[in-house]
Design a protein around this nucleic acid. Structure first.
Lengths: 225, 225
DNA sequence: GTAATAGTGTCTTTCAGACACTATCCT
DNA sequence: AGGATAGTGTCTGAAAGACACTATTAC
């Protein structure tokens, strides 16, 4: 029943897959196989398949599986980028998603993607630069008052490790006492009783994991940190 | 060059137009003229017109003008609602926008929309209930740490009036001293020198307006309120 | 003057950061 | 023992809320 006076619009999803390596946020880029911009590095993305995908989030999951060979525990809708000029094929709608994975998960997925530091991006096709910038801004912003960075940390992890992740994402040192107080208040982590991280020439650290309840939900703090 | 193996997707925008009346958040609904759900109350929305609109935000501006007869100073992309089952016409993408206007602006626009308290919504077609819920959640959340509620207040206004707006949106009383301290810090308002709100049987209040610099930008507070 | 709300000075409480101390490993 | 990092107790300073007080209008 769709009026044919309405010209069709190109509907795609793009995924900003972020990870933390060498204390730096890195984004996954893939070489485009098809035109436009064939051979160029770009965000993994693709058409929405109306016949296969129940919604755009499912499209993003499929794109992530096909192009990066992994399933991201954390996948959130970021924003939608639209307009007549962002894609040379015509008027387009790109629903952008943001995925966060620990570096270890990415390693085992194999080298189908190229990780690039978000602070040293090459020129990118479409408006992918803006999409990445929006994702990084969102992640940094949410990290100030939520448990979001735990998704960048492979379980189990120690509190000093997690603190280092927060510091890398926020780009500034975090007070140790305050950090531990907050983690305690958020009540999101549980210690693996008896499990300690040994090996260093110093006191071993308690290992933690995220409480299953908070696995896919963020825990928010009223007043930051 | 779009492969014709890709079935087309219905692309629309929906606008959640919110205002504050009787100390309650109210959303603008319109009677649908066409199928599906003709005659039902629903969010103002419509197809993206690829030949007219430069992007989806422009579509939202057009929808707001055509269906509500007004131009909203504040218009922000909310989220995108997608899927095979949300619209009986087929697989659809709805880019949702959130608009905030003072009640006075809505009044002069004329009665083309029906204002309904967001806490007493009738059954709505599509997933419009979820879209409104997402908008209200976003507005309440942002009001905790930003200047967003000023867009619900007609200028010029007094600080007690603005405080009442914050309290209505947040649904809880706000400390007067803290509130004034914050407004002072945000440095977003300027007093209209010599202009006082008189008429009450009490001390008149200073009238303020938003500094032009902050007209379309939000002012964020580090620690809430 | 009285009632009513606007606006401010100041005390108290709460919370984040600084600092120092203890704990426990490896060499 | 000595070095290194994990983890904690406690003090301090900043910021938010509570309260009380002054200011200015209408009647």
């Amino acid at each position: 029943m769709k009026p044919d006076s309405i010209p069709s619009v190109i509907c795609t999803v793009d995924v900003v897959l972020l990870t933390l390596e060498q204390a730096t946020l890195q984004v996954a880029l893939v070489r485009r196989e098809r035109e436009p911009f064939a051979q160029a590095l770009a965000l993994p993305g693709g058409y929405i398949h109306a016949q296969d995908d129940v919604d755009a989030q499912a499209s993003a999951v499929r794109v992530l599986r096909d192009k990066a060979g992994l399933e991201s525990p954390y996948l959130e809708q970021l924003a939608t980028f639209t307009g007549a000029v962002r894609d040379p094929r015509g008027w387009s709608v790109a629903v952008a998603y943001c995925a966060l994975v620990p570096a270890s998960l990415l390693a085992q997925a194999g080298g189908r993607v190229e990780m690039v530091p978000v602070d040293a991006l090459p020129p990118l096709p479409f408006d992918h630069r803006q999409i990445i910038d929006a994702a990084v801004l969102r992640v940094r912003s949410k990290s100030q008052y939520s448990s979001l960075p735990v998704h960048l940390c492979a379980e189990p992890f120690t509190l000093p490790q997690l603190q280092a992740v927060y510091e890398a994402v926020l780009g500034e040192p975090v007070n140790k006492v305050s950090f531990r107080r907050k983690m305690d208040e958020l009540d999101m982590l549980e210690p693996l009783v008896g499990a300690l991280q040994t090996g260093g020439a110093h006191r071993p650290a308690q290992l933690y994991r995220v409480r299953p309840v908070y696995r896919r939900t963020l825990s928010l703090s009223a007043r930051g940190l």
